[in-house]
Amino acid sequence: MNGGKQKRVIPGTTLFDGDMARKGYALNKMCFSFNSAENRAEFLRDKEAYCDKYGLNPQQRAAVLSLQVLDMLAAGGNAYYLAKLGGIFGLDMQDIGAQQTGVTKEEFKAKLVAAGRN
């Protein structure tokens, strides 16, 4: 059964497990706070101060400030929580999907449509 140490590798995919949850705790907690409009406004007023308030590490902070989703994932972010950050900038999951896969949003959408045809 689970030896615990060997993890399944699925290309381009991160399993949000205990290691990631610990690593990303502060980042996800900040994103969880974006359930409140007041907090979203506070973030927009001073993003750096808001990151500091939640104790983001330098990697998380840089990823958030540059809005690089893959970097946020690498820093322990979880997609559902990061989506709340995306929401602040009016980004939907297709914008986020396009950014992560290095294509335009139109290309990303076309790929999804094609997936339904085959």
């Binding site: 381009g12 991160t14 085959n118």
Partner: peptide
């Protein structure tokens, strides 16, 4: 569906 990572957009009809 997959929302994150380089495999975002993955579908398996």
């Amino acid at each position: 569906h997959q929302l994150e990572g380089q495999r975002a957009g993955f579908i398996n009809k």
